[in-house]
Design a protein around this nucleic acid. Sequence first.
DNA 1: GACAAATTAGGACGTGCGTCCTAAAAATTG
DNA 2: CAATTTTTAGGACGCACGTCCTAATTTGTC
Lengths: 191, 191
Amino acid sequence: MSESTTRDHIVEAADKLFYEQGYEHTSFTHIADAVRISRGNFYYHFKSKDEILDAVINERLANTRSALEQWEAENSKPADRIRCFIQIMINNRDKIKLYGCPVGTLSTELTKLNHASKAGANELFSLYRTWLCRQFMLLGRKADADQLAMHLLARSQGVATLASAFHDEAFIRQEVRILCDWLAGLKEKNS
Amino acid sequence: MSESTTRDHIVEAADKLFYEQGYEHTSFTHIADAVRISRGNFYYHFKSKDEILDAVINERLANTRSALEQWEAENSKPADRIRCFIQIMINNRDKIKLYGCPVGTLSTELTKLNHASKAGANELFSLYRTWLCRQFMLLGRKADADQLAMHLLARSQGVATLASAFHDEAFIRQEVRILCDWLAGLKEKNS
DNA sequence: GACAAATTAGGACGTGCGTCCTAAAAATTG
DNA sequence: CAATTTTTAGGACGCACGTCCTAATTTGTC
């Protein structure tokens, strides 16, 4: 029942490295050095580099799902839940400043590589999209809930991209404030 | 005085390929096939792959500068000039849908690679930033002109990222409409 | 402690990459 | 047309990569 912990270490290290320096640019040697195992040992746990990527994506999907569930469980008001989403930009501001958004940058890279797992990476976006859509519906915006979800996702992506390009942490805080105001303004339009 | 046209062809093909499939993933063979020249011939025109990247960035910088100048020359009102900027998302929607924003995706990639030319790529962002900043100042928003410029840049980046992830062209049009409304609302706050 | 299974180490293999070198071809000049 | 420079072609080189193979080691079981 208990999985080998080495596999988890590999996925964990690959997750971090794929985020920090990109999937293509990360080699087996990089991951091996991080996990402190032999390069040949990989192929006992994974058949290929692509399989590691799939494992990383699946773990990110699982982590995201549980985070969304938690936000939903810990907050009864949909606006507070959405604020949780916005808040992750503040919580992860250090890494965003350096590496951008892990969801957006992976999606962008795999799309350019036309990689087989690009659909899996975009599934991460869909996870947030449908969750946010549901929250906006609960907020009384049934008609344009998905539009609002996409809008908020796009705003977040843009913040991450520019914060990373200019290494500007204050910009993140500023935009988060604007987004919270935008959210507060939305509530007044409840039906 | 007249430069060899081969060099221009190389830069042109590299520009296109770097945009479509990323810098790292584009090899000399790819460019050579596009330009129809021998692989060894590159090193007469460029000493390294990085040098081609610099040439591509410099051309993009020059093209951007002339585009900004033209928008400024053809429109007397700053709001109309800003609308020109927003409008490029419509004009380039086909490519954005497939490959995202050329500025943002290159900046993201070079940042992850920690490439020496990442500063040059970010200079493209700065070009738009300072130009937009100036337009917002002319619009009477002296106090928060740079903030508005960054905000608009971020919104554009987010739109490109999500449009590419979901291959959604309608989303681009939708967000452009919202951005134009946002811009129109700004004008009312003129001092 | 002997045996089997699971796990790891380390290196071999082929491929594609960026780079470099040299000779051929083309263009230019007198 | 000869001489010289500019431009191109094609392949060699070393290196790093993903992949694969096999032997050693560790772990678990009776």
